[in-house]
Amino acid sequence: MKRLDHIEMFYNFAFINDEVKREVRRAIFKAIAIPGYQVPFGSREMPFARGWGTGGIQITLSIITPTDVLKVIDQGSDESVNAENIKRFVARVSPGIGITTDTTQATIIQTRHRIPEEPMRSDQILVLQVPYPEALREVEPSEVETRRMHAEGDYGRMWLYLYEDIVRFGEVRISYRYPVRVNEHYIMDPSPIPRWDVPKLNMAESLFLFGAGREKRIYAVPPFTRVEPLTFEDHPFRIENFNGAKCKLCGSFDTYLNEIIMTEAGERIFLCSDTSYCKKRRKQLGV
């Protein structure tokens, strides 16, 4: 821990300097003002590898204050190595902040690939780590072209892509990272959350901030904004189906479940992906 003590002595509160924080906050304000629009920002190198949440970390470090309570999850889990690592870092460079695993206690939640099961409130912010900010990347590799498509609302190819999947496979093959339309305007990438979590973005009380460090973009879904998955009238959007499976620990069948291979023979059990919610339920049920 010697190296981390050295951070406290030499760096600003929340590690990055105030000029950069201001820059990031301006990008956040712009993103909130234009829901679903990807705001380019001067993404800095963080002491983590690109693609490991550097966009989310820059947002968290820019908005956190000493009175905040932080929760960090990865794939729904508070204990996964990456979540622990980010939490440990933010805690050490931001003296005074609180750390929690309880969704209801946190003021800021940084997440990778999940939205917590418990509904969030208007005094809470969810910071999502984003690998691909561009929902249209699936149909168009060039950034110059996708920016034009957004500007002109030229979304025909995205609709065609979904339509072709239905024709060829009888199903849209997009599993997670399902494209959504925000405020009836921009098509947005909700980050690689499962389809299970997509409806939670719609008309939510909380603010959602999306940070893509490697691709240098910030975007947002403000509270009470319409967020709709791209879908056809005769082909409704469907969330993941666990075929009646229940969490082995808390017995829940209304949460997103992880499939776990127990033996080489392929025996499986299911567990809640949201570990802190699962723990809470077990406590309530006394199991």
Binding site: F48, A49, I261
Partner: peptide, 25 residues
Amino acid sequence: AFQEIPGGQILGPTTDYTIRLLQME
């Protein structure tokens, strides 16, 4: 692909989870 796997996740030697600060020592 899975949270847990038969035999377990073995992190082993890696710099993946280090905080990238120069080790002035």
